[in-house]
Write a protein that binds this DNA or RNA. Structure first.
Lengths: 343, 343
DNA sequence: CTGAAAGCGCTAACAC
DNA sequence: GTGTTAGCGCTTTCAG
């Protein structure tokens, strides 16, 4: 075999580089430098001469070099990755939560791995496993409605991976949680009803086994305190809410209270079906993320439980944990009354 | 230094393992096996004896071993990761698209990295870079409304990383795209209006610079073919749609056509404000993802442009590319008319 | 049936 | 100012 002229070797090298991904090694070979010099040059390390830095960065740019995140993470054992578990992303509460978390992640140079459980514990478990395999730095989790075994989550904590539960949180009080202020929201709504001198309210709640339902109902009850006639109904879906509302309208209530957006959507359909004018014929007030109430005219008055704000809070709580805070806490976002024209 | 009894060594080893993450090395040391044997045992390799397999898997389970995804990916140079770029996840079209893609990813053992651009080209660029660093296997991309430079995307293709554009796609026809059938949808809506013998329609479109607007308008115009009186209006937001609709109602149209959910939401607010009964006083028909139309009574008749279906289509298109198909194509999802009671 | 060894791409302590 | 070296955790020939 004859020795090939250097020029040809260089060309071959160049071709190889173009074909595959650029690596430090390839850059170093092309420049006749060591890998570490190239690495440092790219990081603008003070040890490296300006001349070398220039040569390196120019070639790196020309070859569109991007560091291999897997290699960096493996080496530094820092992943800058958060996991985020939701029942589904296709939901106007969760999607705004996700939007907020993603925004913050980008600002803080974290990546986000978003996983859907479909509200199934088996998939939830799979997803937690995936998170562990990816060596996430922390997890934002909304448990499924049937989750009983918290062990997989607690194990993460054991591995020094903070878990911030949001929205649907376990009762266990050794966990970090961020929630909407269920009790306060319901209280504000109830007080608004009383202040407006309403006399006969139909209060629509969700599945009565859900803790969110229990909390909101309890607070609502206390605030109303039997001062006015109240009919409490439980709907498991938007369709059921519509049906129950339609039935309850026979008794001519003067106010409809809806504990959530799903319920509100059903209730408003019933109101439209009955051709009632809001607020003349009937007043409406809801607890809501804010999107649905603004679809109607007049806009529905609601107590805001913002997924977006909750996301921001969850993120800051996560950062606090990562910064070493071992103080387990349950945080809530402030509830504010957003006035529409429906009461 | 004295040699320590084996029992103590084992205990120390065990402690170390508990403190940190379990690795193949640690398992192999505890069992007196080589790393490769442990690796193979865990993969149920036929070479390994059942006895060894049992010992290994038992310890691995006890220690909650999960393979380090970064190491696996680095070693195998297979990431099983897709990137997904959207303006925002907090949108009822994109969130259902994402839900569909995520579902399929899970089934096919892929992970998904979801990034929001906030409709800003600068962030879009950052996100593409992130994708490259993570050595994604493919990208689902919805470009920002101001994206002019397609080069970053084309470079991915150069690296054998397929890019499937969806929803907001570039004009360039060397790209793989999946879209809703804009023209067909608008045609179906127009024909439905004609078939119902409507005479005076107000057609509400979005920003007239958007290609989606142009396509839908052109097809709508052709289908209507000046057979009936048509007023075309352009709204840049839900609020503007409401305002324009309110003004247009003065002329007593018998039908409202809305080219999208954002427009529909505004138009319906105007209808409610004017206390018009649908469909007695006015008919309504829309192009929609399906969520908003079902909030009203009667439900709005719409031509479905499903984000969910688009997601499924995008995924299968991605898999085709990965399987080696170099056939660049623009796919569309079928448009179906979903009948409500609004026309 | 099991082990040794190389190497994926990168960082960082240590040498010179 | 630059190079050498070891090693992150894993897979996978190749030997035995």
């Amino acid at each position: 075999m004859f020795a090939k002229p250097i020029a040809v070797n260089k060309l071959i090298l160049q071709l190889i580089v173009i074909m595959n991904n650029t690596t430090l090694k390839k850059i170093s070979e092309m420049l006749g430098l060591s890998i570490s010099t190239v690495s440092r040059a790219l990081k603008n390390h003070p040890d490296i001469s300006d001349k070398t830095k220039l040569r390196v960065t120019e070639l790196a740019n020309a070859l569109d070099y991007e560091p291999n995140a897997n290699a960096v993470h493996l080496r530094t054992s820092k992943n800058n990755l958060f996991g985020l578990l939701v029942p589904t992303v296709a939901n106007f509460f969760y999607d705004s939560f996700i939007a907020a978390v993603e925004e913050e992640c980008r600002k803080s140079n974290y990546s986000l791995m978003i996983l859907q459980s479909g509200d199934e514990p088996a998939i939830e478990l799979e997803n937690i496993k995936l998170c562990r395999q990816n060596r996430i730095s922390g997890l934002f989790a909304c448990i499924t409605s049937q989750t009983v075994d918290l062990d997989p989550y607690l194990k993460l904590n054991g591995l020094d991976i903070p878990v911030i539960f949001f929205d649907k949180v376990p009762d266990d009080n050794t966990c970090n949680k961020v929630c909407v202020a269920d009790a306060v929201s319901a209280t504000i709504a109830a007080n608004t009803i009383l202040k407006n001198k309403k006399k006969k309210v139909v209060a629509l709640f969700g599945n009565r086994n859900l803790s969110i339902t229990k909390k909101r109902l309890a607070a609502f009850d206390i605030a109303i305190n039997r001062k006015i006639k109240t009919t409490v109904l439980y709907a498991n879906s938007t369709a059921e809410a519509e049906e129950l509302t339609t039935q309850s309208l026979i008794e001519n209530p003067d106010t409809l209270f809806c504990m959530s957006d799903e319920i509100l959507a059903g209730a408003m359909k019933a109101v439209q079906r009955a051709r009632l004018l809001v607020p003349k014929d009937i007043s409406v007030i809801s607890i809501s993320n804010g999107f649905i109430p603004k679809l109607y005219f007049p806009e529905i008055t609601y107590v805001e439980t913002s997924g977006y704000k909750l996301g921001k809070l969850a993120f800051s709580s996560m950062m606090a944990c990562l910064a070493g805070s071992t103080f387990v806490q349950e945080l809530t976002i402030e509830s504010v009354l957003v006035k529409g024209g429906s009461i």
